[in-house]
Amino acid sequence: MPRIKIDHKKCTGCRHCEAACSSEHYDGSINPKKSRIRIFIEGERFYPVISGPPTDAECTSKIDYVLHGEEYDECTLCRASCPTRPWFREPDTDVALKCDFCGDPPDPKCVNVCISGALELTGVEEEKKEAA
């Protein structure tokens, strides 16, 4: 199965992926608020988050993560487009956004522009072999 592997330790927070993603899905217009990948930035840490299936309502219970000794709400790194936060929803229409790997075969533009190596596409070769 194609996957985008995220190594947050390599992410430099340049957000070029956000620009590339929105450009791909909006006929060349750039708008990070419409990107299906967002970089969660806090202090000196950057966490790329790629949108998954949307949800209609907020979770009724939550998990807290402890990362580098700091506590984070589950929403922070959640992949869902959810009514409780503006991420992964079009700001003007509220339409939910979900990563589609930029088509089939997968050609994710976020990975293409990521020079730091934080994003990597894996599992494509493996799938080709299986198909053969």
């Binding site: 430099t12 927070g13 340049c14 070029h16 000196e44 020079i115 730091s116």
Partner: peptide, 28 residues
Amino acid sequence: LIRNQGCFSCPMSCGGPAEVKEGPFEGV
């Protein structure tokens, strides 16, 4: 250096937080 950091749409990321752990100049 804790990590390097880039400006918007810059792959060269020449900045980044750095930490002095102790002594008179301590701080991030």
